[in-house]
Computed example of a mutant assay.
Amino acid sequence: MRDAGGTTMSLGMIQGLNELRRWNIPNAINRMILLTDGVTYGDSERCRQLARDARAAGISIYPLGIGQDWDESLLDTIGEMSGGMPAEFIRNPADAMTVFEQQFQSAVAVAVRNTTLTLRLPEGVKPKKAVKVLPIISDFGQSVLSDRQVIIQLGDLEKDSAQSVLVELMIDPRPAGLFRIAQAELSYDVPIANLIGERVRDDIKVTFTTNANEAAQVNPLVMNFA
């Protein structure tokens, strides 16, 4: 395997998506492994649209880059838009089979699908930033933020594999007391149990204080990722 020559990545993506649609099995894990050794030419937006189409069809894309010239930013976007993962770098062609095996094991481990985290915000609370911190650090960008809510597509979740999201909020001053700063909702499917559109909700509450010592206290776990 050698990394050389030009790439029109959208053509390969179209072929792969057509095959996955052709052999679509209800409740199965539909996953495309996208391997590229270069920068695509003139069809970046088409690739992004195909990633959106893949997500709508329940197909997640897991990009793999090999060589020195692949477009990490575009591949990250394709993975995240489709509900997959950001790009993974294969340093040595000999490692490709190991990575493919890891991808297979990852697909087998999926327990929950189509996971979406929604934060609904009250008056006086605005979102500033949202970042995935586990299993890998990835900035969701401004597209997941709006004035009164944050919507984050988490895609497939694997058994025994933690996912953590850090959301930075701007909160207007409050008097001392306990206040709700958001309502969190997690929606998801569990195909093996025939559960579709399941939802769980919880309020996120913060205690405001005028005590300087209490205000100086921080949550070590949160600060570790901040």
Rank of each mutant, 00 (worst) to 15 (best):
D3R: 04
S10Q: 02
L11A: 12
M13E: 07
I14F: 00
R21I: 01
I25F: 00
I25W: 01
P26E: 00
I29V: 14
N30G: 00
I33Q: 02
T36Q: 02
D37P: 01
R46M: 12
R46G: 10
L50V: 12
D53Q: 14
A54P: 09
A54F: 03
G58T: 05
I61L: 05
Y62T: 06
G67C: 10
E72V: 00
E72Q: 13
L74K: 07
L75R: 06
T77E: 11
A87V: 13
R91L: 14
N92D: 15
Q102Y: 10
F104H: 12
S106P: 03
S106D: 11
T116I: 12
L117H: 10
V125T: 08
V125P: 01
V133Q: 01
I136G: 04
L145C: 08
S146V: 10
D147W: 02
Q153E: 06
L157Q: 05
D160T: 03
L166F: 01
I171R: 06
L178Y: 15
F179V: 06
I181G: 10
Q183W: 05
L186H: 12
L186S: 11
S187A: 15
S187V: 12
D189F: 02
N194P: 07
T207D: 09
F208R: 10
T210Q: 15
L221V: 14
